[in-house]
Each structure stands twice: as C-alpha cells, then as structure tokens.
Simulated assay, not measured.
Amino acid sequence: MADSSIPRVAVVTGASRGIGRAIAATLAAAGHAVVVGCAGSPGAAADVVQQITAGGGLAIAARADVADEQQVAALFDTATSTFGGLDVVVHSAGRLSLSTIADLDLDDLDALHRTNIRGTFVVAREAARRVRGGGAVVMLSTSVVGLQFPTYGAYAASKGAVEAMTLILARELRGRDVTVNAVAPGPTATELFLEGKDEATIDRLAEQPPLERLGTPADIAEVVSFLTGPGGRWVNGQVLRVNGGII
C-alpha cells in the first residue's frame, strides 16, 4: 500500500504567471509537491513558491527552456532528487505571436514553433520516461484550434501539433497506468491575453460564451486538478475545450 504521507509530485512548466501559476497553486492545495518551472522571471517563480509554502505546501522553483532537452532533463532530475519521484507533468509553457498568415514574420514563426512544438515534444518525451504508474500528463492547447480566430494562424497550428502529440502519447503509454490529456482554454483573463486589447474587444470576447464572461486562470486550473486527481483516472487521450461553451 502506498504511503499516504508522501505527497504526489508535480512539475508545472510556465508556472511563474497566468494559467501556469494558478495550476501550480491549485495542485499544491490538492496536496502535490510542486516544481515551479519557468524559463525566465525567477522572481515571479519565487513568488509562486512563497505563496505555496506560506499556505503549508511544498514547492521549489527551477529554470528551464522547455525546448532545450538538457535543461528539461535537469528540471525533471530536480523533481526526483528533491521529492523522490514524479507523478504529474503539466506543460503550460508557451509562446504567442499574433499576425495574419500573409504578414507573419517567419522568425516569429520559428520562435513560436521552437517553444510550442519542440518544447512540447521535449517535455512529453521526458514525461513518458519518468512519470510513475498512477500518474498523469496534461498539455495546454487552445480552443482557437477549433474556433479559427483570425491572426491566430501560427499559434493555432502549433497547438494543433500539441493536441496530436497528446493523443498519440496517450496510446504509446498503454499499460503504464498513466493518463495523458490536453486542456484547451478559451479566452482567459490573464495579463498576456489582456495586453494590448481595448475594452470593447475584451467585452466582445467575454460575450461569446453562453456564460457571458471570460475564463479565469482558476477555471482552467480546476480542470487540470481534476484530470491529475483520483476523479480523472478514467479520462485519457482527450482534448477538453474549457471555454464556457463557445462553439
């Protein structure tokens, strides 16, 4: 029988702000020891750790460029050496570039795909090698894959790749008792999402779902918590569109 005094261990990439930060805090509140992964912003990552530990949770921060396989391996090494193993990987790190397809700078495309496609593949590969039985892997996609908003072409294309990798990894881990799913948020009120948008644009986006509001980071984090917890064990190989009902 597993020792219930030993917490499950989670690595959350992109956890220094926005949705990733909410996921790290929510998993910690659910009893996980959390590795707060970030590529930059060490001060912001330290703030997340302080928030978690002040509430009685376990957390450490670790830096890694998700597209660099050596740094990602070191991130996972930190999780196992500090907390004794690895049960949950949530890949929230990502890059966003908005432009029409006709006008997109290909250097921006390459940078976006390096983080969103190569980075996801590197994290997925390491997760496949390390997550213990009974564990879970959750990738972050976007509802724009289905909604096809103009100017999101490159971003949606990269997240379409994330969804394909997620569904294939779920099948490749047959027999391992590890679930693999993707969560695809709709418009969510993060600093990154709100940046550069006027009030009229924000109001228009908030009116799209039948629930008539933007999502919050907590809305997304609670779904991730479900998928990584005991209630989500029979959900596998799925993409959950978490967007308040936008069609």
Rank of each mutant, 00 (worst) to 15 (best):
S4G: 03
S4L: 15
I6C: 11
A10Q: 10
V11Q: 11
G14N: 09
G20C: 06
R21T: 06
A22Y: 12
I23S: 09
T26F: 02
T26C: 10
L27K: 11
A28R: 01
A29C: 06
H32V: 04
V34S: 11
V36Y: 03
G37C: 08
C38W: 08
A39N: 14
A44L: 14
A45K: 02
A45G: 10
D47P: 01
Q50C: 05
Q51C: 06
L58Y: 12
I60K: 12
R63Y: 02
A64N: 03
D65A: 15
V66Q: 13
A73K: 14
F76W: 12
D77Y: 09
T80G: 11
L86T: 09
L86R: 08
V88Y: 07
V89Y: 07
V90E: 00
H91L: 05
S97T: 12
S99I: 05
T100D: 12
L104A: 04
D105C: 08
D107I: 00
D110W: 00
D110S: 01
A111Y: 05
L112G: 01
T115D: 01
N116K: 06
R118T: 02
F121A: 13
V122G: 03
R125E: 10
E126Y: 07
E126A: 15
A127S: 09
R129W: 02
R132Q: 14
G133S: 15
G134V: 07
M139I: 00
S141A: 06
V144N: 15
V144S: 15
V145Y: 03
P150C: 08
G153N: 02
G153H: 00
Y155V: 02
A156V: 07
G160E: 00
V162Y: 05
T166E: 02
T166V: 05
I168C: 12
A170Q: 03
E172M: 10
G175V: 08
D177A: 14
V178E: 11
N181I: 03
A182W: 03
A184L: 01
P185S: 09
P187R: 10
T190A: 01
E191N: 11
L192F: 04
L194M: 14
L194P: 05
T201M: 13
T201A: 13
I202R: 12
D203R: 15
L205M: 15
L205E: 14
A206T: 08
P209T: 11
P209N: 11
P210T: 09
L211H: 10
R213N: 06
R213T: 13
L214S: 07
P217T: 07
A218D: 15
I220E: 03
A221E: 13
A221T: 09
F226T: 09
F226A: 11
T228G: 03
T228S: 10
P230K: 07
R233S: 07
G237C: 01
R241E: 12
V242T: 08
V242R: 08
N243F: 06
